[in-house]
Amino acid sequence: MTGAPEPTPVHPPGTDHFRIGVDGRHIPAEAGQTVGAAMLAAGIRSWRTTRFAAKPRGLFCGIGVCFDCLVTVNGTPSLRACLVDARPDDEVSTT
């Protein structure tokens, strides 16, 4: 998990706000936002390394097709961060 330029959220915070954990760090998320979008909004843009060359990967297709953005959420592995909606107190772990 590596940091990068921290983009700002497009819309001002709404009412349905909560936090999720990513490898022990807490980041903000909104209802209806995907885990991957919340991570990117928090400045996390790479969270997986490839199994042969250990290259960093994060979101790519963003719509569930490429499987580059896989994460483990609350112990369930191999979930697409771009599709899984964040829920309060989710614990996301990356590899």
């Binding site: 497009v10 909104e30 936002q33 990117l40 979101l59």
Partner: peptide, 26 residues
């Protein structure tokens, strides 16, 4: 093309339209 930060055009749009998140600064 496999570097994080390279997004499909549709993926960049999905982040904004579906999540209200801008993918980057520039």
């Amino acid at each position: 093309w496999d570097l994080p930060g390279v997004l499909t055009a549709g993926g960049a749009q999905a982040l904004i339209k579906g999540n209200g998140v801008a993918p980057g600064r520039r």
